[in-house]
């Protein structure tokens, strides 16, 4: 059995450390050579981000993994998988994703003719500012670079102005004041040198955790025998999903250490950004904006009974209720 697998961003640690070894070595070995894998990534194929899952559903490849949020054009209800600010640590984020799993399974089956196999996190999308900030409230009136619809709406509700700048131009934009703040993974910001051009780090998941969904074409999945299905699922759960989640919190702490000099740093030299600790007031403020504006807005976009289902699952897991 040869599987054609399309991985997520080839340059990021999730692909290099987990996806690539799992699909090219772990799984073929565990299957005793029964499963062979041809691995590429969506950026190497130059796929449109919104096309990755729809093409999976049409059987253009067997397995695809990418940020669930990229597919919300075709499935607005999927935005509920990755809500900014509701999970401030990896354990909570994992709980939220597990609570959302049945909904995600259903969305992928219906919208993309695909079987969800695993959901793993990217590092949380935190805030780099080249401006004095002490709390979430201080983002009001600032120009902020972020991506994704729900994050943009959250910033809008906060009184910040969303600015579109591509990732590679962020350092220049921060330096020249084109943007005051920018959102990305702490590790990406560290390796791209954002600490050179920004002063304050607010390590809260303003852009959410960008969960990466691994899914298989449904026809392909149904064509596999039960043993193979079980093998793939158990291998993914124990040797891909679990380690990716287990190291997420540590990686965040390490990246914050590297950027601020407070704490350990194993990835390189320590830098000295000012660490802005999120206070309870910040979280309360975020929850207030989410429940009063951003999430009701989403519930309307998603339609159906998604609001109730979200409240009963993800909402219950993190203690947030959409009115």
């Amino acid at each position: 059995e040869t599987l054609s697998v399309v991985g997520s961003w080839s340059g990021l640690p999730l692909h290099k450390e987990y996806e690539a070894p799992f699909w090219s070595e772990t799984l073929p070995a565990a299957s005793g050579g029964k499963i062979e894998v041809e691995l590429t990534t969506h950026n190497q194929m130059n796929l449109g981000l919104g096309d990755i899952y729809p093409l999976l559903g049409q059987g253009v490849y067997d397995v695809a993994m990418t940020v669930g949020d990229y597919a919300v054009s075709d499935a607005p209800e999927l935005e509920g998988l990755d809500v900014p600010m509701i999970a401030t640590d990896a354990a909570t984020a994992r709980k939220a994703v597990e609570a959302a799993r049945p909904m995600v399974d259903e969305i992928f089956a219906e919208r993309f003719n695909s079987k969800v196999l695993a959901i793993a996190p990217y590092p949380p999308q935190v805030v780099f500012c080249n401006a004095e900030i002490a709390s979430l409230d201080d983002l009001a009136g600032k120009k902020v670079r972020a991506s994704g619809r729900m994050t943009a709406k959250f910033l809008e509700a906060l009184g910040a102005e969303g600015v579109n700048v591509s990732f590679s131009e962020v350092p220049g934009a921060l330096q020249k004041g084109v943007v005051d703040c920018a959102v990305t993974g702490a590790g990406s910001g560290y390796s791209a040198g954002w600490w050179e051009v920004s002063t304050h780090l607010l390590p809260i998941p303003l852009g959410g955790w960008d969960p990466v969904v691994t899914a298989m074409n449904m026809d392909k999945w149904n064509g596999l025998d039960a043993d193979t299905q079980a093998l793939i699922q158990s291998e993914l759960a124990t040797k891909f999903e679990a380690p990716a989640w287990d190291t997420a919190q540590g990686a965040l702490a390490n990246d914050i250490g590297c950027l601020t000099g407070q704490g350990d740093c194993t990835s390189g030299d320590k830098r000295s950004m000012t660490l802005v600790e999120a206070s309870d007031a910040d979280i309360a403020k975020a929850t207030e904006i989410l429940t009063s504006e951003v999430l009701p807005d989403w519930a309307e976009r998603a339609g159906g009974d998604w609001k109730d289902r979200w409240n009963a699952s993800v909402g219950a897991a993190v203690g947030v209720t959409i009115e």
Binding site: G50, D74, R149, K153, E156
Partner: peptide, 18 residues
């Protein structure tokens, strides 16, 4: 056809119906 079927909108604040 996919955009019609899913009433797809752009993943942006504009939410342009595709």
């Amino acid at each position: 056809a996919r955009s019609i079927k899913n009433s797809s909108t752009a993943n942006t604040p504009l939410e342009t119906p595709l």
